[in-house]
């Protein structure tokens, strides 16, 4: 399976491990919040990289004390109309200062992909049955943005006043 980073398909280096399955020794693994909480002490001491997957009703505040140990937080879109993960990504980045990878999974359509990147997602697992190329196309759909977020895209407001500064 591949994941998308900036629209480009890449091999998925992470393994999602079911709650009742043994953890592989060396792989990068993603566990559920429930497993993380139950096995927290052991998991924190694991040598290989570890990530936690949050369901859309699970706030990132539940793992705020563990973010130093986590390399990845995966946020679920159970339905593409459930937009909580957009706020959760912003809370992770802006409020909790998380610098690791934020990954989206579940029913993620290309029509949301640009929004996800603007909110701080790094990678997504494309929805089953959708054209993978569509996600890269979606990133080219807009060149103008109104909202300042913490990505590097300049907003209309910044461009306007930059332009005026040059003109002045």
């Amino acid at each position: 399976m591949t994941v998308l980073r900036n629209g480009v398909p890449q091999p998925n280096e992470w393994v999602r491990v079911a709650d009742d399955a043994p953890l592989p020794e060396t792989d990068k693994v993603i566990v559920s919040l429930e497993r993380w909480q139950a096995e927290r002490v052991n998991l924190r001491q694991r040598n290989a990289a570890i990530g936690v997957a949050l369901k859309s009703e699970q706030s990132p505040l539940l793992i705020q004390d563990d973010l130093d140990r986590l390399s990845l937080v995966a946020l679920e879109f159970p339905k593409f109309t459930d937009g909580r993960a957009f706020s959760h990504a912003r809370v992770l980045r802006d409020r909790l200062g998380f610098t690791g990878e934020i990954r989206g999974f579940g029913q993620v359509l290309r029509d949301q992909y640009l929004f996800m990147l603007r909110c701080g997602f790094d990678t997504v697992e494309p929805a089953a049955g959708k054209r993978v190329e569509g996600y890269a196309e979606a990133l080219k759909e807009f060149s103008v943005f109104y909202q300042p977020t913490n990505d590097d895209r300049a907003t209309a407001l910044q461009l306007r006043h930059r332009k005026e500064a040059v003109a002045a």
Binding site: F80, T81, D82, G83, F86, S87, R90, Q112, L114, F115, M116, R118, C119, F142, Y146, Q147, T149, A156, L157
Partner: peptide, 11 residues
């Protein structure tokens, strides 16, 4: 302008 295609608040 702020509300138009807001990346966080469109769903």
């Amino acid at each position: 302008q702020w509300s138009t295609l807001h990346p966080e608040f469109s769903y």
